[in-house]
Design a protein around this nucleic acid. Sequence first.
DNA 1: TTGAATTATAAGGTATGCCTTATAATTTTT
DNA 2: AAAAATTATAAGGCATACCTTATAATTCAA
Lengths: 218, 218
Amino acid sequence: MDKDVTVRERVEDYLGAIYRLRATAELPVPLSVLGEHFGFSPVSIHEMIQKLSQRGWITYYPYRGVILTEQGEAVAIALLRRHRLWERFLTDMLDIPWAEAHDIAGALEHATPESVTERLSTLLGDPVSCPHGVPIPPSKRAYTDICLRHVPVGARGRVTRIAPEFGDILRDVQAWGLLPGCQIIVIEQQKTEIIVQVEERLVSIPLDSANVIWIEVL
Amino acid sequence: MDKDVTVRERVEDYLGAIYRLRATAELPVPLSVLGEHFGFSPVSIHEMIQKLSQRGWITYYPYRGVILTEQGEAVAIALLRRHRLWERFLTDMLDIPWAEAHDIAGALEHATPESVTERLSTLLGDPVSCPHGVPIPPSKRAYTDICLRHVPVGARGRVTRIAPEFGDILRDVQAWGLLPGCQIIVIEQQKTEIIVQVEERLVSIPLDSANVIWIEVL
DNA sequence: TTGAATTATAAGGTATGCCTTATAATTTTT
DNA sequence: AAAAATTATAAGGCATACCTTATAATTCAA
C-alpha cells in the first residue's frame, strides 16, 4: 500500500476497503481481512480500527470485526462514487487504459470535493456504471430508513430491518420484541444504551445493537 | 497552509512556491519570503530548505536565499502546468468559478501523472493560458507529433502513428490512405469532422478518429 | 566600528501511522 | 476439557514536518 499518504486519505481508504470487503467477507469484516488487504501488521490494523471506532466511523466487535456506521458508510459510498466517475472520465474522455485509470482514480478521488463530483457526473452524462459495468453509487441514498442509533429522542418509527445480522443479534431482537414491522418510540439516549418503548414496554438497547436495527421514522 | 499533506506534496509545494515567488522577490528567494508565504516559522522553513538542498532540488545560499536547480525547476514547471490545465478543465468543462477552481486544482495537481496531464491538455485543445490569461508552461514532451484534431487548419504534416488503435480505426485509416508516413494538409475543421487533403484527394474524418491519428507538423 | 536586526543552528516537543516483540484474552478445533 | 489457533493489548521504536525557546553567526545601518 502507499507509504506517502495523508491522515484523511488513510481514513477514507479504510472506510472504502471495509465497504468493498463486505462483498467477499462475512459481516462484520474481520480485521485479518483488512490486514491482508492493506498488507499491514495486525497490530497496526487494530490500532487504526480503535481510532476509527472512537471517531464514530465504524462499530468494532472484538474478536469478530467491524461494520460501518451510517456516517462511515456515507463516506465510503461518496468515495466510491468519486472513484468510479474518475474512472469513467479517464477511460472515456482521456482514453486511458482501465487498469491505469483505476490507480489514478484512487489518487484523484481524495482530492475531489462534492461540487466537482456532481459536475463531473453531469459532464459524463450521469453514468450508472464504471467502465467494467460495476454500478456507480448514486449521489443520494435510495433507502429511507436510518439506524436506530440516530433516531432522535421522541421520534416514532417502525423497524424495517436488522442488518447486518450476525452473532446473537437476532435472538436479542426477538427478546426485545423489535422484529421488523413493529412500532417504537425512542424515549431516551444514554452513553451506552438507548431506551425504546415497544408496545407498552420499555426496552434498553446497547448502542452496538442499535447500530444494526434500522428504523423508518414516521 | 494545509496541515494534512503528504511529504511529496509538501516538497512540490515548496518548489512551486519558490518558482512563483521569483516574480515578486529578488533572487535568490529569501527564506523570510517563503516563511511569510507558507505561514511557517523561520526554523521550520530553514529545516525544510536544508532537506531540499541536500536532495538537489535547490541551491541554498546562507543568509541570502534559495534558487531552484535545473531539476527543481523542472518539477515546479510540471506542477504549474498540471495546475493550470486543471484550472481550465474545471472552469471550461465543469463551469466551476475560478477562485474555487484554483484551490481544487491545487489538490488535483499532486495526484496527476504525466500521462493524464498530456491527455488532459489534448482534451482541452492544448490551451496556452489559464482562465485568467496566465501562460501555461508547455510540456517538454519527447515526441513532437500532436493529434490530428489539434492540427491548425492550413497546416501541412505527416502521419506518424495511429494511437490508441482500436475498433475499426485501422481499416478506416487504410481506406482514407492515412497510413503513417503519408503527407496531409488540413483543409477545414467542422463540428464533427475534419477535412483533410491526402495526395490529390479530400477526405472527411470524424473527430473521434482524428483523436487517434498523430501528425508531425512540417 | 559598533550596535541593531536578521538569519542560522541547536535542543527538545507534538502528532501520526506504521513497525516489532511479547504477553494476555478469546475462539476454534481436537 | 484440553490444546491449538486466532485475536487483542501493552510497550517501545522510526520517520516526518511542524512547533517553541535559546543561542550563535552574519549582515546591515548608524
